[in-house]
Design a protein around this nucleic acid. Structure first.
Lengths: 155, 155
DNA sequence: CTTGACTTTCCAACGATGGGAAGGTTCAGC
DNA sequence: GCTGAACCTTCCCATCGTTGGAAAGTCAAG
């Protein structure tokens, strides 16, 4: 199997297969005489595993651990559960932060009449000139309201 | 005001102030004879505006528009509201995706006994060998389950 | 005049992914 | 055997927002 077929079969793009190889997430693929990589069923399974783990939002660092745990038949389920739990905690924290933002923004959008007039509570709030959204500013204005994201981008 | 004081006063790091200037989000700062930038109250207001907008998860492209709307006293609130609404829609979509993932992962974590035994539904699911989490795979395994994130990273 | 705290610019990295160039390989059709 | 299409290779660059650092210049206090 060449890399294109492996990509097709696994759902991981050829680009990313090379990338995963380069970063050591998967072992160096065997090469044909020509230099072409070739892949076996076993590699496809690995790639599918990675695709699912990425879909679940695990970082490549976490996936590396998951893969080695997967390959180690002696591993205790405890370790896997711990890793997944940590990720889940991250996910929930991120959801909470996003929800806080969405809630505040939602409120502002509701309060904005949105017609041809010039006054707009959204801008006023961003400018710090509006007390109506004081909560929003307190929550997200002064501290570090950035949102951690381990999850990949969608186009 | 030098850049350090502007950073202090606005809550935007000096690094980012330079970056925002370089990318055209804020106008080129006035320079002292020495080459040092100096900032006025007006600039600080701009920077605070940007900080709050970033906190609300707006992209720099969106903030650029918001800033120009803010400066334009003739702008209709309609435009601001539309921009905010689009962002809110994005936020909600992202939250939904994260919640789907969290839900599925949560279920798997619950099903994993997490002791010294070797069998683990989490790994089995990632490996595609477990039907218990069929839903999860259907939702996130075959399509493009990546999560768009316009929001900045937290360290 | 020295020292330390500032500032400047430039270059690089993160993480996951995609785009594309320049060149080599394989295979089918003629 | 030759040609062209469709593959493959490596390498560089871009995204997005942010941070880090290096090398050099500036300022103010001692």
């Amino acid at each position: 199997m060449n890399i294109g077929q492996a990509a097709q079969a696994s759902g991981v793009s050829a680009k990313m297969i090379r990338h995963y190889e380069a970063m050591g997430l998967i072992p160096q693929a065997a090469r044909a005489y020509s230099g072409y990589r070739h892949f076996l069923e076993r590699d496809i399974h690995n790639l599918r595993f990675i695709r699912r783990a990425r879909a679940a939002g695990f970082s490549t660092a976490q996936i590396k651990k998951l893969l080695s745990l997967w390959q180690d038949r002696q591993r205790p389920a405890r370790e896997v559960k711990q890793l997944a739990t940590e990720h889940l905690t991250d996910l929930k924290a991120r959801i909470s932060e996003l929800e806080l933002i969405a809630q505040a923004l939602s409120q502002l959008v509701e309060q904005c009449h949105g017609d041809e007039r010039q006054d707009c509570p959204i801008l006023d709030t961003l400018a710090g000139q509006d007390d109506r959204a004081k909560k929003f500013l307190e929550l997200h204005g002064t501290s570090h309201p950035r949102i951690r994201s381990k999850l990949p981008m969608k186009k």
